[in-house]
Design a protein around this nucleic acid. Structure first.
Lengths: 188, 188
DNA sequence: AACGGTCGTTCGTCAAACCGAACGAGCGGA
DNA sequence: TCCGCTCGTTCGGTTTGACGAACGACCGTT
C-alpha cells in the first residue's frame, strides 16, 4: 500500500508529531535540539510546520525522542473494532477447505494484516510468494497443522508459533479437522 | 523502541531501497523522476548514496514507487522462527492466572509485539495504559473472555476478534478455564 | 526592580539539496 | 556507419534547509 493518500508530504503531521512526542518525554525544545545535535532554531521551525527536514535531521530527532522514524511521518489512528467469529470479509481458496477472515487490514501507517484462518485436513493451502519483505506470523489456536516454508514446514500444535518470510513459497496444511490459526501478515 | 541502532541516518539503506523498488516496478530512473516531479539528477544522486533527501522528496518517491514511506528508510529483515507451546519468555501477572508468552518482539523497523496469552477465570488482568498510540489486537483461541476497554469490555468466543487503543485502561478477564488468545501489541 | 535562568522565536549567513542542461555510453534500425 | 533514442551520470546555478547569535517573554530569587 502506498503512503496515506497521494497528497503532498505530511509536513504538518511531522510538525504535530515532533511537538507531541517532545511533550510526551517532557523535554524543552532547546534540550531536544541539543541532544539531537541540531540547532534549536531548526527544531522550532519544524514544529511550527515551516520547513522540510532532511532525512538526517528527522532521523536524529527520532532517535532522540525514542520514537520510530515512521511514526513521525505517518500520523496516529484510533478506536475499537470487533469482529465476531464467522463475520468479517473472508477469502476462500479454491479446491481447499481454507478460509481466511480479514480481521484488521493494513491502514496507512501500519503495515500488517491480521487474519483468522480456518482449515480442514486433506488439502494443502500453498501460497505463491507475496511481495518482497513480507513476513508472516502464525499462532495455532486449535487442531494441528504443517506451516511454513514449503521446503521445510513446521508442525504446529495449539499455542505453537512460527514466523517465516512470505516472499518464499509457503504452505498451510491442516492435519486435524477444524484447525484454526491467527495469521499476521507483516508488510515490512 | 527507537529506530534501528542509534547510528546515523540510513542513507545507504535509502539508496538501496530506492534502486531496489524502482527495479521492482521496472521503470527507468528518468521515468521515476519525471513521475515523482523531481530532477533525475537528484534521484541519481540518491540512488548512489550521495545525498540527504528532504522529506518532500522522499515522500514523492514513495508515492510514485507505491512503497510505504517507512520501507524506504527502514531496511529489510529476515528468517524463520519457531516457538513451541510452553516455550519462550513468559510474563506472569501477580495474583492473576495470566501468562503472556512473547512470540515476536519488536525488531527495528517493525513496531509490534506478538503474545500468546493464557488465562484462568476468577481474576481480572487489568492493564494500566501503555504508551500513547499503542493499539492491541486480540483473537480468542479457546475459552471465553471479557476483553477491551475497562469501561466497555467485549465478550469474546473462540475466533472472535477485538482491537482497542492500548493507551486507555483495559482488561483481559477469562470466563472459562484454559482461555487462550493471541495478542498483537502494535506500537503505532 | 533588577537579576540570572530558561523558554521558544526570529534573523542573517552558509552549506547543500535540488534543478536543468549537457554529456558519454549503449542499443536498434536504416 | 550514421542516425535517433533512452539510459544514467556529471556540471554550474539557484533555492532553501540548517546553523548560531540575538531577541523578547516568562518565571523564581534577592
Amino acid at each position: 500500500m502506498a503512503p496515506s493518500e497521494s497528497s503532498g508530504a505530511p509536513l504538518a503531521a511531522i510538525a504535530a508529531s515532533l511537538q507531541r512526542e517532545r511533550r510526551r518525554v517532557g523535554l524543552s525544545l532547546a534540550e531536544v535540539a541539543r541532544r539531537a545535535g541540531i540547532a534549536k532554531s531548526t527544531l522550532s521551525q519544524l514544529e511550527s510546520g515551516t520547513g522540510n527536514p532532511s532525512v538526517e535531521t528527522l532521523w536524529a530527532l527520532s532517535v532522540t525522542l525514542d520514537v520510530p522514524f515512521a511514526q513521525l511521518v505517518e500520523p496516529p489512528r484510533p478506536r475499537v473494532q470487533v469482529i465476531k467469529a464467522g463475520e468479517g470479509p473472508t477469502f476462500t481458496a479454491e479446491r481447499s477447505d481454507y478460509v481466511a477472515t480479514l480481521l484488521a487490514s493494513c491502514p496507512p501507517g501500519a503495515r500488517r494484516d491480521v487474519y483468522l484462518v480456518s482449515s480442514q485436513p486433506g488439502t494443502v493451502r500453498a501460497s505463491d510468494p507475496h511481495s518482497p519483505g513480507l513476513i508472516e506470523h502464525v499462532v495455532l489456536s486449535t487442531g494441528r497443522a504443517l506451516v511454513g516454508i514449503t521446503d521445510e514446514p513446521v508442525e504446529l500444535a495449539p499455542g505453537d508459533y512460527v514466523s517465516y518470510p512470505g516472499d518464499l513459497p509457503h504452505i498451510f496444511r491442516a492435519l486435524e479437522p477444524d484447525t484454526t490459526a491467527v495469521l499476521l501478515s507483516e508488510h515490512q
